[in-house]
Design a protein around this nucleic acid. Structure first.
Lengths: 254, 254
DNA sequence: CTTGCTATGTAACCTAAGTTACAGAAATTT
DNA sequence: AAATTTCTGTAACTTAGGTTACATAGCAAG
Protein backbone atom coordinates (compact mmCIF):
# COMPACT_ATOMS: atom_id res chain seq x y z
CA UNK A 1 0.00 0.00 0.00
CA UNK A 2 1.31 3.40 -0.86
CA UNK A 3 1.29 6.21 1.64
CA UNK A 4 -2.26 7.46 1.92
CA UNK A 5 -3.13 10.09 4.41
CA UNK A 6 -6.64 10.62 5.61
CA UNK A 7 -9.65 11.21 3.44
CA UNK A 8 -10.56 14.84 3.52
CA UNK A 9 -14.08 16.14 3.56
CA UNK A 10 -14.63 18.71 0.88
CA UNK A 11 -16.54 21.06 3.09
CA UNK A 12 -13.77 21.08 5.63
CA UNK A 13 -11.20 21.82 3.01
CA UNK A 14 -13.21 24.75 1.84
CA UNK A 15 -13.64 26.18 5.28
CA UNK A 16 -9.95 26.05 5.97
CA UNK A 17 -9.05 27.44 2.56
CA UNK A 18 -7.44 30.79 2.07
CA UNK A 19 -10.48 32.48 0.69
CA UNK A 20 -10.17 34.91 -2.18
CA UNK A 21 -13.45 36.78 -2.24
CA UNK A 22 -14.84 37.94 -5.52
CA UNK A 23 -13.83 41.52 -6.09
CA UNK A 24 -12.79 44.15 -8.58
CA UNK A 25 -11.44 43.78 -12.09
CA UNK A 26 -7.91 44.14 -10.81
CA UNK A 27 -8.51 40.75 -9.31
CA UNK A 28 -8.34 39.38 -12.85
CA UNK A 29 -4.61 39.88 -12.87
CA UNK A 30 -4.17 37.83 -9.77
CA UNK A 31 -6.33 35.02 -11.07
CA UNK A 32 -4.69 35.19 -14.46
CA UNK A 33 -1.30 34.71 -12.82
CA UNK A 34 -2.59 31.67 -10.98
CA UNK A 35 -4.01 30.27 -14.18
CA UNK A 36 -0.95 30.92 -16.31
CA UNK A 37 -1.01 27.26 -17.28
CA UNK A 38 -4.57 27.53 -18.60
CA UNK A 39 -4.12 29.53 -21.79
CA UNK A 40 -6.94 27.56 -23.42
CA UNK A 41 -9.20 28.80 -20.67
CA UNK A 42 -8.03 32.35 -20.01
CA UNK A 43 -6.81 33.59 -23.37
CA UNK A 44 -10.22 34.01 -24.95
CA UNK A 45 -12.14 34.11 -21.71
CA UNK A 46 -15.28 36.19 -21.84
CA UNK A 47 -16.83 38.22 -19.03
CA UNK A 48 -18.96 35.36 -17.73
CA UNK A 49 -15.91 33.15 -17.46
CA UNK A 50 -13.93 35.78 -15.58
CA UNK A 51 -16.85 36.25 -13.32
CA UNK A 52 -16.71 32.57 -12.44
CA UNK A 53 -12.97 32.60 -11.94
CA UNK A 54 -13.21 35.59 -9.65
CA UNK A 55 -15.68 33.78 -7.48
CA UNK A 56 -13.43 30.76 -7.16
CA UNK A 57 -11.70 30.07 -3.90
CA UNK A 58 -8.09 29.16 -3.79
CA UNK A 59 -7.44 26.14 -1.70
CA UNK A 60 -4.39 24.17 -0.67
CA UNK A 61 -4.30 20.41 -0.27
CA UNK A 62 -1.33 18.43 1.01
CA UNK A 63 0.21 15.57 -0.94
CA UNK A 64 -1.40 12.13 -0.79
CA UNK A 65 -4.86 13.39 0.03
CA UNK A 66 -7.75 11.39 -1.36
CA UNK A 67 -9.90 13.91 -3.21
CA UNK A 68 -12.70 11.60 -4.10
CA UNK A 69 -13.22 7.91 -4.17
CA UNK A 70 -15.68 5.19 -5.02
CA UNK A 71 -19.20 6.52 -5.07
CA UNK A 72 -18.48 9.92 -3.63
CA UNK A 73 -20.38 12.86 -4.90
CA UNK A 74 -18.55 16.07 -5.66
CA UNK A 75 -19.95 19.47 -5.06
CA UNK A 76 -17.31 21.55 -6.82
CA UNK A 77 -15.25 21.76 -9.90
CA UNK A 78 -11.54 22.13 -9.34
CA UNK A 79 -9.05 23.89 -11.59
CA UNK A 80 -5.58 22.85 -10.61
CA UNK A 81 -3.12 25.68 -10.20
CA UNK A 82 -0.12 23.85 -8.81
CA UNK A 83 0.73 20.21 -8.24
CA UNK A 84 -0.88 17.15 -9.71
CA UNK A 85 -3.67 14.69 -9.10
CA UNK A 86 -3.69 11.07 -10.10
CA UNK A 87 -7.00 9.60 -11.18
CA UNK A 88 -7.06 5.85 -11.02
CA UNK A 89 -9.17 2.77 -10.74
CA UNK A 90 -8.47 -0.03 -8.32
CA UNK A 91 -9.36 -3.69 -8.38
CA UNK A 92 -10.71 -5.88 -5.60
CA UNK A 93 -7.41 -7.80 -5.74
CA UNK A 94 -5.52 -4.67 -4.78
CA UNK A 95 -4.12 -3.73 -8.15
CA UNK A 96 -4.44 -0.29 -9.69
CA UNK A 97 -4.34 1.45 -13.06
CA UNK A 98 -3.79 5.11 -13.57
CA UNK A 99 -6.44 6.51 -15.89
CA UNK A 100 -4.94 9.95 -16.21
CA UNK A 101 -3.27 12.71 -14.34
CA UNK A 102 -4.68 16.17 -13.81
CA UNK A 103 -2.06 18.88 -14.00
CA UNK A 104 -2.20 22.65 -14.15
CA UNK A 105 -4.17 23.58 -17.22
CA UNK A 106 -6.50 20.64 -16.95
CA UNK A 107 -9.55 19.61 -15.06
CA UNK A 108 -10.75 16.31 -13.77
CA UNK A 109 -13.30 15.06 -16.23
CA UNK A 110 -14.76 12.61 -13.78
CA UNK A 111 -15.36 15.47 -11.51
CA UNK A 112 -17.20 16.89 -14.51
CA UNK A 113 -19.13 13.72 -15.09
CA UNK A 114 -20.28 13.97 -11.56
CA UNK A 115 -21.34 17.58 -11.91
CA UNK A 116 -23.10 17.07 -15.22
CA UNK A 117 -24.85 13.79 -14.64
CA UNK A 118 -25.18 14.00 -10.92
CA UNK A 119 -24.03 10.44 -10.49
CA UNK A 120 -20.95 9.33 -8.70
CA UNK A 121 -18.60 7.07 -10.51
CA UNK A 122 -16.45 4.43 -8.82
CA UNK A 123 -13.06 5.92 -9.40
CA UNK A 124 -10.34 7.35 -7.18
CA UNK A 125 -8.39 10.59 -7.21
CA UNK A 126 -5.49 11.50 -5.02
CA UNK A 127 -2.99 14.35 -4.90
CA UNK A 128 0.55 13.26 -5.64
CA UNK A 129 2.17 16.49 -4.58
CA UNK A 130 1.07 19.43 -2.49
CA UNK A 131 -1.60 21.02 -4.56
CA UNK A 132 -3.27 24.37 -5.04
CA UNK A 133 -6.57 24.59 -6.83
CA UNK A 134 -9.35 26.99 -7.59
CA UNK A 135 -12.63 25.62 -6.35
CA UNK A 136 -15.80 26.46 -8.21
CA UNK A 137 -19.08 25.55 -6.55
CA UNK A 138 -21.51 23.50 -8.56
CA UNK A 139 -24.18 26.15 -9.12
CA UNK A 140 -21.63 28.62 -10.43
CA UNK A 141 -20.21 25.97 -12.68
CA UNK A 142 -23.61 25.32 -14.20
CA UNK A 143 -24.42 28.98 -14.54
CA UNK A 144 -21.15 29.66 -16.31
CA UNK A 145 -21.68 26.74 -18.63
CA UNK A 146 -24.84 28.52 -19.71
CA UNK A 147 -23.33 31.95 -20.05
CA UNK A 148 -19.76 31.56 -21.16
CA UNK A 149 -18.96 30.36 -24.64
CA UNK A 150 -15.26 30.25 -23.92
CA UNK A 151 -15.72 28.09 -20.84
CA UNK A 152 -17.93 25.71 -22.80
CA UNK A 153 -15.35 25.32 -25.49
CA UNK A 154 -12.71 24.66 -22.88
CA UNK A 155 -14.82 22.01 -21.16
CA UNK A 156 -15.78 20.28 -24.40
CA UNK A 157 -12.21 20.21 -25.62
CA UNK A 158 -10.95 18.73 -22.38
CA UNK A 159 -13.61 16.07 -22.40
CA UNK A 160 -13.03 14.94 -25.93
CA UNK A 161 -9.27 14.94 -25.44
CA UNK A 162 -9.59 12.69 -22.42
CA UNK A 163 -11.83 10.43 -24.41
CA UNK A 164 -9.19 10.00 -27.08
CA UNK A 165 -6.67 9.29 -24.38
CA UNK A 166 -8.93 6.60 -22.99
CA UNK A 167 -9.14 4.94 -26.36
CA UNK A 168 -5.36 4.80 -26.43
CA UNK A 169 -5.41 3.15 -23.03
CA UNK A 170 -7.91 0.55 -24.17
CA UNK A 171 -6.04 -0.20 -27.32
CA UNK A 172 -2.80 -0.56 -25.35
CA UNK A 173 -4.38 -3.11 -23.05
CA UNK A 174 -6.08 -4.94 -25.88
CA UNK A 175 -3.20 -5.19 -28.31
CA UNK A 176 0.18 -4.35 -26.82
CA UNK A 177 2.48 -6.46 -24.79
CA UNK A 178 3.52 -5.21 -21.40
CA UNK A 179 7.10 -4.51 -22.46
CA UNK A 180 5.81 -2.25 -25.23
CA UNK A 181 3.52 -0.46 -22.85
CA UNK A 182 6.35 0.10 -20.39
CA UNK A 183 8.71 1.28 -23.14
CA UNK A 184 6.09 3.71 -24.41
CA UNK A 185 5.49 5.03 -20.96
CA UNK A 186 9.21 5.56 -20.35
CA UNK A 187 9.58 7.18 -23.72
CA UNK A 188 6.81 9.57 -23.00
CA UNK A 189 8.18 10.47 -19.59
CA UNK A 190 11.70 11.01 -20.89
CA UNK A 191 10.30 13.18 -23.65
CA UNK A 192 8.39 15.24 -21.14
CA UNK A 193 11.41 15.61 -18.88
CA UNK A 194 13.92 16.10 -21.71
CA UNK A 195 15.82 12.98 -20.76
CA UNK A 196 15.99 13.73 -17.05
CA UNK A 197 16.01 10.57 -14.90
CA UNK A 198 12.48 9.47 -14.01
CA UNK A 199 11.77 9.26 -10.30
CA UNK A 200 9.58 6.23 -9.78
CA UNK A 201 9.77 2.90 -8.03
CA UNK A 202 8.98 -0.33 -9.79
CA UNK A 203 5.85 -0.86 -7.79
CA UNK A 204 4.62 2.63 -8.57
CA UNK A 205 5.16 1.96 -12.25
CA UNK A 206 3.22 -1.27 -11.84
CA UNK A 207 0.29 0.66 -10.39
CA UNK A 208 0.59 3.09 -13.22
CA UNK A 209 0.11 0.41 -15.84
CA UNK A 210 -2.13 -2.04 -14.03
CA UNK A 211 0.40 -4.80 -13.51
CA UNK A 212 2.64 -6.18 -10.76
CA UNK A 213 5.94 -5.09 -9.34
CA UNK A 214 7.76 -8.27 -10.35
CA UNK A 215 6.76 -7.91 -13.99
CA UNK A 216 8.03 -4.34 -14.05
CA UNK A 217 11.33 -5.32 -12.43
CA UNK A 218 11.78 -8.12 -14.92
CA UNK A 219 11.07 -6.02 -17.98
CA UNK A 220 13.09 -3.03 -16.82
CA UNK A 221 16.02 -5.39 -16.31
CA UNK A 222 15.63 -6.57 -19.88
CA UNK A 223 15.71 -2.96 -21.02
CA UNK A 224 18.86 -2.39 -19.00
CA UNK A 225 20.47 -5.36 -20.72
CA UNK A 226 19.51 -3.83 -24.04
CA UNK A 227 21.21 -0.64 -22.80
CA UNK A 228 18.18 1.65 -23.23
CA UNK A 229 18.06 2.58 -19.57
CA UNK A 230 20.06 2.35 -16.39
CA UNK A 231 18.34 1.45 -13.16
CA UNK A 232 18.87 2.88 -9.73
CA UNK A 233 16.85 2.77 -6.56
CA UNK A 234 13.76 4.84 -7.18
CA UNK A 235 15.08 6.19 -10.46
CA UNK A 236 15.37 5.25 -14.11
CA UNK A 237 18.07 6.87 -16.20
CA UNK A 238 17.89 7.15 -19.95
CA UNK A 239 20.84 5.51 -21.64
CA UNK A 240 19.94 5.39 -25.30
CA UNK A 241 16.88 7.19 -26.56
CA UNK A 242 17.12 5.49 -29.93
CA UNK A 243 17.12 1.94 -28.63
CA UNK A 244 14.24 2.72 -26.31
CA UNK A 245 12.26 4.12 -29.20
CA UNK A 246 12.87 0.96 -31.19
CA UNK A 247 11.72 -1.20 -28.30
CA UNK A 248 8.62 0.94 -27.81
CA UNK A 249 7.73 0.39 -31.43
CA UNK A 250 7.91 -3.35 -31.09
CA UNK A 251 11.22 -3.61 -32.92
CA UNK A 252 13.77 -5.89 -31.29
CA UNK A 253 10.89 -7.92 -29.96
CA UNK A 254 13.09 -10.36 -28.09
CA UNK B 1 -12.60 -10.51 -42.36
CA UNK B 2 -16.21 -9.59 -42.03
CA UNK B 3 -18.19 -8.34 -45.02
CA UNK B 4 -17.17 -4.77 -45.66
CA UNK B 5 -18.65 -2.89 -48.55
CA UNK B 6 -16.98 0.15 -50.05
CA UNK B 7 -15.99 3.24 -48.17
CA UNK B 8 -18.49 5.95 -48.84
CA UNK B 9 -17.63 9.58 -49.28
CA UNK B 10 -19.73 11.77 -47.05
CA UNK B 11 -20.46 14.32 -49.67
CA UNK B 12 -21.75 11.64 -51.99
CA UNK B 13 -23.98 10.23 -49.33
CA UNK B 14 -25.42 13.63 -48.73
CA UNK B 15 -26.10 14.25 -52.38
CA UNK B 16 -27.93 11.02 -52.75
CA UNK B 17 -29.82 11.47 -49.48
CA UNK B 18 -33.54 12.00 -49.32
CA UNK B 19 -33.37 15.63 -48.41
CA UNK B 20 -35.83 17.07 -45.92
CA UNK B 21 -35.58 20.82 -46.38
CA UNK B 22 -36.03 23.04 -43.37
CA UNK B 23 -39.61 24.20 -43.24
CA UNK B 24 -42.57 25.11 -41.06
CA UNK B 25 -43.27 24.29 -37.46
CA UNK B 26 -45.41 21.35 -38.51
CA UNK B 27 -42.11 19.86 -39.53
CA UNK B 28 -41.36 19.48 -35.81
CA UNK B 29 -43.83 16.66 -35.58
CA UNK B 30 -42.10 14.75 -38.33
CA UNK B 31 -38.68 15.22 -36.79
CA UNK B 32 -40.00 14.39 -33.37
CA UNK B 33 -41.32 11.11 -34.68
CA UNK B 34 -37.95 10.30 -36.17
CA UNK B 35 -36.25 11.16 -32.90
CA UNK B 36 -38.64 9.23 -30.69
CA UNK B 37 -35.64 7.44 -29.24
CA UNK B 38 -34.03 10.72 -28.21
CA UNK B 39 -36.15 11.87 -25.29
CA UNK B 40 -33.10 13.38 -23.63
CA UNK B 41 -32.68 15.57 -26.67
CA UNK B 42 -36.22 16.41 -27.72
CA UNK B 43 -38.17 16.53 -24.49
CA UNK B 44 -36.77 19.80 -23.23
CA UNK B 45 -35.57 21.03 -26.57
CA UNK B 46 -35.58 24.78 -26.97
CA UNK B 47 -36.21 26.78 -30.14
CA UNK B 48 -32.56 26.84 -31.18
CA UNK B 49 -32.37 23.08 -30.90
CA UNK B 50 -35.51 22.58 -32.99
CA UNK B 51 -34.14 24.95 -35.50
CA UNK B 52 -31.09 22.75 -35.87
CA UNK B 53 -33.10 19.58 -36.09
CA UNK B 54 -35.29 21.07 -38.77
CA UNK B 55 -32.27 21.86 -40.86
CA UNK B 56 -30.97 18.33 -40.62
CA UNK B 57 -31.10 16.09 -43.62
CA UNK B 58 -32.33 12.56 -43.35
CA UNK B 59 -30.01 10.12 -44.95
CA UNK B 60 -29.96 6.40 -45.49
CA UNK B 61 -26.85 4.25 -45.37
CA UNK B 62 -26.75 0.53 -46.15
CA UNK B 63 -25.36 -2.02 -43.73
CA UNK B 64 -21.60 -2.55 -43.52
CA UNK B 65 -20.68 0.89 -44.76
CA UNK B 66 -17.54 2.42 -43.32
CA UNK B 67 -18.59 5.81 -41.98
CA UNK B 68 -15.19 7.01 -40.97
CA UNK B 69 -11.84 5.49 -40.44
CA UNK B 70 -8.28 6.19 -39.43
CA UNK B 71 -7.46 9.83 -39.83
CA UNK B 72 -10.59 10.85 -41.66
CA UNK B 73 -12.10 14.19 -40.94
CA UNK B 74 -15.84 14.46 -40.48
CA UNK B 75 -17.85 17.37 -41.62
CA UNK B 76 -21.16 16.56 -39.96
CA UNK B 77 -22.70 15.36 -36.80
CA UNK B 78 -25.00 12.40 -37.14
CA UNK B 79 -27.99 11.59 -34.98
CA UNK B 80 -28.97 8.01 -35.56
CA UNK B 81 -32.64 7.41 -36.17
CA UNK B 82 -32.66 3.74 -37.10
CA UNK B 83 -30.05 1.01 -37.10
CA UNK B 84 -26.73 0.91 -35.35
CA UNK B 85 -23.12 1.81 -35.82
CA UNK B 86 -20.16 0.01 -34.34
CA UNK B 87 -17.21 2.13 -33.31
CA UNK B 88 -14.04 0.15 -32.96
CA UNK B 89 -10.30 0.20 -32.98
CA UNK B 90 -8.18 -2.21 -34.94
CA UNK B 91 -4.65 -3.44 -34.46
CA UNK B 92 -1.89 -3.83 -37.03
CA UNK B 93 -2.09 -7.59 -36.39
CA UNK B 94 -5.67 -7.62 -37.62
CA UNK B 95 -7.45 -7.83 -34.30
CA UNK B 96 -10.27 -5.52 -33.26
CA UNK B 97 -12.03 -4.21 -30.16
CA UNK B 98 -15.42 -2.64 -30.11
CA UNK B 99 -15.29 0.62 -28.20
CA UNK B 100 -19.01 1.26 -28.22
CA UNK B 101 -22.08 1.11 -30.35
CA UNK B 102 -24.14 4.09 -31.41
CA UNK B 103 -27.85 3.38 -31.42
CA UNK B 104 -30.92 5.54 -31.79
CA UNK B 105 -30.85 8.10 -29.03
CA UNK B 106 -27.10 8.42 -29.07
CA UNK B 107 -24.43 10.15 -31.01
CA UNK B 108 -20.94 9.22 -31.92
CA UNK B 109 -18.66 11.00 -29.51
CA UNK B 110 -15.64 10.55 -31.70
CA UNK B 111 -17.53 12.27 -34.38
CA UNK B 112 -17.92 14.97 -31.75
CA UNK B 113 -14.26 14.96 -30.88
CA UNK B 114 -13.58 15.58 -34.49
CA UNK B 115 -16.02 18.44 -34.69
CA UNK B 116 -14.87 20.08 -31.49
CA UNK B 117 -11.13 19.70 -31.74
CA UNK B 118 -10.85 19.58 -35.46
CA UNK B 119 -8.48 16.67 -35.35
CA UNK B 120 -9.11 13.27 -36.75
CA UNK B 121 -8.69 10.34 -34.48
CA UNK B 122 -7.54 6.91 -35.61
CA UNK B 123 -10.68 4.94 -35.01
CA UNK B 124 -13.21 3.16 -37.18
CA UNK B 125 -16.97 3.29 -37.46
CA UNK B 126 -19.15 1.06 -39.54
CA UNK B 127 -22.87 0.53 -39.87
CA UNK B 128 -23.97 -2.92 -38.73
CA UNK B 129 -27.48 -2.67 -40.12
CA UNK B 130 -29.16 -0.45 -42.65
CA UNK B 131 -29.18 2.90 -41.01
CA UNK B 132 -31.08 6.15 -41.10
CA UNK B 133 -29.59 9.26 -39.60
CA UNK B 134 -30.11 12.97 -39.35
CA UNK B 135 -27.08 14.79 -40.64
CA UNK B 136 -26.18 18.13 -39.15
CA UNK B 137 -23.50 20.15 -40.90
CA UNK B 138 -20.61 21.33 -38.81
CA UNK B 139 -21.39 25.07 -38.82
CA UNK B 140 -24.94 24.43 -37.67
CA UNK B 141 -23.68 22.12 -34.98
CA UNK B 142 -21.37 24.81 -33.63
CA UNK B 143 -24.00 27.49 -33.86
CA UNK B 144 -26.50 25.37 -31.96
CA UNK B 145 -23.95 24.56 -29.30
CA UNK B 146 -23.77 28.30 -28.71
CA UNK B 147 -27.47 28.93 -28.72
CA UNK B 148 -29.20 25.91 -27.32
CA UNK B 149 -28.89 25.05 -23.65
CA UNK B 150 -30.81 21.82 -24.10
CA UNK B 151 -28.51 20.64 -26.88
CA UNK B 152 -25.48 21.47 -24.79
CA UNK B 153 -26.75 19.46 -21.90
CA UNK B 154 -27.46 16.55 -24.18
CA UNK B 155 -23.97 16.66 -25.68
CA UNK B 156 -22.25 16.97 -22.33
CA UNK B 157 -24.24 14.11 -20.86
CA UNK B 158 -23.46 11.85 -23.76
CA UNK B 159 -19.78 12.64 -23.57
CA UNK B 160 -19.43 12.01 -19.89
CA UNK B 161 -21.44 8.82 -20.10
CA UNK B 162 -19.17 7.47 -22.80
CA UNK B 163 -16.23 8.38 -20.69
CA UNK B 164 -17.51 6.30 -17.80
CA UNK B 165 -18.11 3.48 -20.19
CA UNK B 166 -14.54 3.72 -21.37
CA UNK B 167 -13.27 3.45 -17.83
CA UNK B 168 -15.25 0.24 -17.48
CA UNK B 169 -13.60 -1.07 -20.61
CA UNK B 170 -10.14 -0.22 -19.31
CA UNK B 171 -10.79 -1.75 -15.97
CA UNK B 172 -12.11 -4.91 -17.63
CA UNK B 173 -8.95 -5.27 -19.67
CA UNK B 174 -6.71 -4.44 -16.76
CA UNK B 175 -8.25 -6.66 -14.12
CA UNK B 176 -10.70 -9.23 -15.46
CA UNK B 177 -10.04 -12.55 -17.02
CA UNK B 178 -11.39 -13.20 -20.46
CA UNK B 179 -14.01 -15.66 -19.26
CA UNK B 180 -15.41 -13.02 -16.92
CA UNK B 181 -15.50 -10.47 -19.67
CA UNK B 182 -17.30 -12.87 -21.96
CA UNK B 183 -19.77 -13.84 -19.26
CA UNK B 184 -20.48 -10.20 -18.50
CA UNK B 185 -21.00 -9.45 -22.16
CA UNK B 186 -23.41 -12.35 -22.56
CA UNK B 187 -25.20 -11.36 -19.42
CA UNK B 188 -25.65 -7.85 -20.65
CA UNK B 189 -26.89 -8.98 -24.05
CA UNK B 190 -29.37 -11.46 -22.60
CA UNK B 191 -30.61 -8.75 -20.26
CA UNK B 192 -31.11 -6.39 -23.17
CA UNK B 193 -32.89 -9.02 -25.23
CA UNK B 194 -34.87 -10.47 -22.31
CA UNK B 195 -33.24 -13.87 -22.71
CA UNK B 196 -33.70 -14.12 -26.46
CA UNK B 197 -30.90 -16.08 -28.16
CA UNK B 198 -27.99 -13.85 -29.15
CA UNK B 199 -27.15 -13.87 -32.82
CA UNK B 200 -23.40 -13.73 -33.08
CA UNK B 201 -20.58 -15.88 -34.34
CA UNK B 202 -17.60 -16.72 -32.21
CA UNK B 203 -15.30 -14.66 -34.33
CA UNK B 204 -17.59 -11.65 -34.12
CA UNK B 205 -17.61 -11.98 -30.36
CA UNK B 206 -13.81 -12.13 -30.46
CA UNK B 207 -13.69 -8.84 -32.37
CA UNK B 208 -16.11 -7.42 -29.88
CA UNK B 209 -13.80 -8.11 -26.95
CA UNK B 210 -10.41 -7.78 -28.58
CA UNK B 211 -9.46 -11.45 -28.54
CA UNK B 212 -9.32 -14.43 -30.90
CA UNK B 213 -11.93 -16.80 -32.22
CA UNK B 214 -10.33 -19.87 -30.66
CA UNK B 215 -10.38 -18.36 -27.19
CA UNK B 216 -14.03 -17.49 -27.53
CA UNK B 217 -14.91 -20.99 -28.76
CA UNK B 218 -12.99 -22.53 -25.88
CA UNK B 219 -14.59 -20.39 -23.20
CA UNK B 220 -18.10 -20.64 -24.62
CA UNK B 221 -17.70 -24.43 -24.59
CA UNK B 222 -16.76 -24.25 -20.91
CA UNK B 223 -19.91 -22.24 -20.29
CA UNK B 224 -21.94 -24.83 -22.14
CA UNK B 225 -20.48 -27.53 -19.92
CA UNK B 226 -21.47 -25.47 -16.91
CA UNK B 227 -24.96 -25.32 -18.44
CA UNK B 228 -25.27 -21.54 -18.56
CA UNK B 229 -25.69 -21.43 -22.30
CA UNK B 230 -26.38 -23.64 -25.27
CA UNK B 231 -24.45 -23.13 -28.48
CA UNK B 232 -25.67 -23.28 -32.03
CA UNK B 233 -24.27 -22.10 -35.31
CA UNK B 234 -24.30 -18.31 -35.16
CA UNK B 235 -26.41 -18.27 -32.02
CA UNK B 236 -26.04 -18.50 -28.27
CA UNK B 237 -29.05 -19.62 -26.22
CA UNK B 238 -29.46 -18.81 -22.57
CA UNK B 239 -29.82 -21.93 -20.45
CA UNK B 240 -29.50 -20.76 -16.88
CA UNK B 241 -29.43 -17.09 -16.10
CA UNK B 242 -28.41 -17.74 -12.53
CA UNK B 243 -25.32 -19.81 -13.34
CA UNK B 244 -24.25 -17.29 -15.94
CA UNK B 245 -24.54 -14.52 -13.42
CA UNK B 246 -22.39 -16.44 -10.97
CA UNK B 247 -19.75 -17.01 -13.62
CA UNK B 248 -19.80 -13.35 -14.62
CA UNK B 249 -19.13 -12.40 -11.02
CA UNK B 250 -16.07 -14.60 -10.86
CA UNK B 251 -17.77 -17.26 -8.77
CA UNK B 252 -17.14 -20.83 -9.90
CA UNK B 253 -13.78 -19.65 -11.11
CA UNK B 254 -12.70 -23.00 -12.39
C1' DC C 1 -26.04 -34.71 -54.65
C1' DT C 2 -21.90 -32.56 -54.89
C1' DT C 3 -19.05 -28.70 -54.20
C1' DG C 4 -17.75 -25.08 -51.53
C1' DC C 5 -18.05 -21.87 -47.95
C1' DT C 6 -18.54 -20.56 -43.24
C1' DA C 7 -18.67 -21.73 -38.46
C1' DT C 8 -17.28 -24.54 -34.81
C1' DG C 9 -14.41 -28.05 -32.03
C1' DT C 10 -10.29 -29.31 -30.30
C1' DA C 11 -5.61 -30.92 -29.33
C1' DA C 12 -0.84 -29.68 -28.93
C1' DC C 13 2.02 -26.30 -28.32
C1' DC C 14 3.98 -21.73 -27.14
C1' DT C 15 4.52 -17.46 -24.73
C1' DA C 16 3.23 -13.55 -21.80
C1' DA C 17 1.91 -12.54 -17.54
C1' DG C 18 1.23 -13.38 -12.86
C1' DT C 19 2.61 -15.70 -8.40
C1' DT C 20 5.48 -17.41 -4.68
C1' DA C 21 9.16 -17.11 -2.19
C1' DC C 22 13.12 -15.70 -1.15
C1' DA C 23 17.79 -12.95 -0.86
C1' DG C 24 20.17 -9.01 -0.69
C1' DA C 25 20.95 -3.86 -1.33
C1' DA C 26 19.95 0.81 -0.16
C1' DA C 27 17.99 4.11 2.64
C1' DT C 28 16.04 5.57 7.17
C1' DT C 29 15.30 5.37 11.96
C1' DT C 30 16.66 4.48 16.51
C1' DA D 1 26.31 1.26 14.35
C1' DA D 2 22.37 -1.56 14.66
C1' DA D 3 17.81 -2.26 13.49
C1' DT D 4 14.15 -1.62 10.44
C1' DT D 5 11.92 -0.50 6.40
C1' DT D 6 11.74 0.01 1.59
C1' DC D 7 13.23 -1.30 -2.70
C1' DT D 8 15.14 -4.43 -6.15
C1' DG D 9 16.65 -9.02 -8.23
C1' DT D 10 15.61 -13.37 -9.44
C1' DA D 11 14.53 -18.25 -9.83
C1' DA D 12 10.87 -21.65 -10.06
C1' DC D 13 6.48 -22.39 -11.02
C1' DT D 14 1.50 -21.69 -12.55
C1' DT D 15 -1.88 -20.04 -15.45
C1' DA D 16 -4.21 -17.35 -19.00
C1' DG D 17 -4.18 -16.37 -23.41
C1' DG D 18 -2.71 -16.92 -28.08
C1' DT D 19 -1.22 -19.86 -32.13
C1' DT D 20 -1.07 -23.69 -35.29
C1' DA D 21 -3.16 -27.00 -37.46
C1' DC D 22 -6.55 -29.74 -38.53
C1' DA D 23 -11.20 -32.10 -38.39
C1' DT D 24 -15.90 -31.86 -38.78
C1' DA D 25 -20.53 -29.88 -39.13
C1' DG D 26 -24.11 -26.95 -41.09
C1' DC D 27 -25.71 -24.61 -44.75
C1' DA D 28 -26.35 -22.97 -49.51
C1' DA D 29 -25.76 -22.81 -54.49
C1' DG D 30 -25.26 -25.08 -58.57
Amino acid sequence: MSAISSLVDHEQILDSAQACPAESASQNLHIKALLSKYPALTEDADAACWNMLNQAKLMTVPADTVLFHEAMECKHLMLIVKGQVRVYKDSPEGREVTLYRVEPGQLCVHNLNNLVNGLAYPIMAQTETDMQGLVIPRPIFHKTLEESASFRTYVLRTLTERLSHMVDLVSGFAFDRLDLRIACWLNHEFEKGCGKPIKITHSELAQELGTTREMVSRILKEFEHKRCVQLARGKIHLQCRHTLKLVSQGQGKK
